[in-house]
Amino acid sequence: MKARIDFRNAAPDVFKAMRDLEAGVRRSALEHSLLELVKVRVSQINGCGYCLDMHIKEALAAGETGQRLYLLSAWREAPFYSPRERAALSWAEAVTLVSTNELPDELYAEVREQFDEKATMELTLAIIAINGWNRLVKACRTEVGSYVPAAVA
């Protein structure tokens, strides 16, 4: 597919705001591995090839196993995810699909068992950020496949 628009140059101030949100997520106390799992799962739901390519490469470069990434779309059936990761993935799915699903109190309670108030907000903002990136790069048809992780570059 041909790219539609280069959002970095077309709206640099707005792009900077997105980058600032992402920088805040990276500065959070949440584990890098957890953030990458959440970003991959949300990108799977949204069908975002660019973000899948990016975050799978980032996760692998940071030491994530292929097995956990291959099975991420079926994480409820796989024994490879911790209770903390499971709570984050459940929350990520619910927040991503908020237009068609509720955010039940039981799920929030499950999240709060694993994350304090600050971490819950950081996780929620990380989910909001990757949903925004997914929508931005899909709308602009950003080229898929060329991303090189910083650890490799």
Rank of each mutant, 00 (worst) to 15 (best):
A62H: 14
L35K: 15
R68S: 05
A11K: 03
F115N: 00
R27D: 12
T142N: 08
Y70V: 07
D20K: 12
P79R: 03
I45Y: 14
A61Y: 09
E93H: 08
L103P: 00
G63L: 13
K138A: 08
A11N: 08
F7T: 06
I45A: 13
S99L: 11
A10F: 12
P104H: 06
R8G: 01
P83L: 04
K57P: 00
L136E: 05
R19V: 13
V111K: 06
L37A: 09
A23E: 14
R19Y: 06
T124R: 09
A119F: 01
L97C: 02
L69V: 09
A3I: 01
A17L: 14
I45Q: 09
A88D: 06
L69E: 07
S28T: 14
A151P: 00
W75C: 07
L123K: 08
Y50K: 05
A17Q: 13
A10W: 05
S43M: 11
V95M: 13
M54Q: 09
R4Q: 09
L69W: 06
S82D: 04
F80S: 10
G24V: 08
K16M: 04
W133R: 07
L97Q: 11
R4I: 11
R86E: 08
W91H: 02
L34V: 12
R68E: 02
N134G: 04
Y50P: 00
Q67F: 06
W133Y: 15
L125D: 01
F115W: 02
G49P: 05
I128K: 02
N131L: 10
A92L: 08
Q67E: 09
N101Q: 11
